[in-house]
């Protein structure tokens, strides 16, 4: 039987015998490659339920392992290690150690929803990727990803004013992720703009950085949303067995 996704088998688990005879048949050489058998005892039986308790993860139990998500995936085409089908398999099996090998790339899902479009079981794999990335952060396996910093800065702006101002979101993001604003490509972009932009446009841009665009009478709404978000945070921490006082 052909082995699909061969890259998932790590080299240290492959055995090739230069000289081997089984039942009188010579099976020496590269063609008789074996996968080392292994015994797993340390399943994390809570992992699937915990990820299902986070927003987006609710339908993970529906997965049939057909692989349509990975086949459709934008990021998989750029990086073959990005494999939603495999991760859903690991989570459902409770194979935490295996999942943690890929912990630093799971947040890279671009939310294009090609997987959701292709999935015949309404697993909403895009949501599962987000839930898994959050689970890794909440459990302390990974620091907050650049994407989480961006999402949080963005959401805080909406809760404060009802709207976002792109310049502020950009500055907050670069600051929180410790990146300089003077990246060569950004400088080239802005330099080109300043030369060309009509004065009125530049004045408006400057204006909106000082006087942030806002929805009027928003305070009460922002507070109502904040209350809901903190309620949900507490519920999720409880579902994940985290110490709510310590935060994460």
């Amino acid at each position: 039987m052909p082995i699909h996704e061969k890259s998932l088998i790590r080299p240290e688990n492959l055995i090739t015998n230069d000289s081997l005879v089984i039942d009188g048949v010579d099976v020496s050489g590269h063609w008789s490659t074996f996968i080392k058998s292994r015994t797993i005892t340390d399943y994390n039986e809570a992992m699937e339920d915990e990820i299902a308790a986070l927003p987006g993860g609710e339908n993970i139990h529906r997965c049939w392992q057909c692989g349509s998500c990975t086949n459709a995936c934008t990021v998989n085409a750029v990086n073959p290690d990005f494999n939603p089908r495999y991760w859903i398999y690991l989570i459902r099996q409770g194979l935490e150690e295996e999942l943690l090998r890929d912990k630093d790339i799971i947040w890279q899902c671009v939310s294009c929803n090609k997987c959701t479009y292709a999935c015949p079981r309404d697993v909403l794999p895009e949501g599962v990727m987000k839930a898994t990335a959050h689970w890794l952060e909440l459990k302390g396996h990974t620091p907050k990803s650049p994407s989480t910093h961006f999402d949080e800065g963005f959401t805080e702006s909406i809760l404060a004013t009802g709207k976002i101002e792109e310049g502020r979101v950009l500055r907050t993001f670069f600051q929180r992720t410790g990146q300089p604003l003077n990246q060569p490509w950004l400088v080239a972009l802005v330099g080109g703009l300043v030369k060309r932009f009509p004065l009125g446009y530049l004045i408006r841009m400057g204006w909106s950085t000082v006087f942030r665009p806002r929805t009027s009478n928003w305070r009460r709404t922002g507070r109502a949303i904040e209350e809901y978000v903190s309620e949900r945070r507490a519920e999720q921490a409880k579902a994940l067995g985290l110490d709510t006082k310590g935060g994460h």
Binding site: P55, G56, F154, T155, G162, K163, N217, T221
Partner: peptide, 18 residues
């Protein structure tokens, strides 16, 4: 009149219901 941000692509990652 007095519209607000729709949540863009970011807010759902904090909470989809928001």
């Amino acid at each position: 009149k007095n519209w607000n941000c729709c949540g863009a692509m970011e807010v759902k990652n904090v909470d989809p219901q928001v």
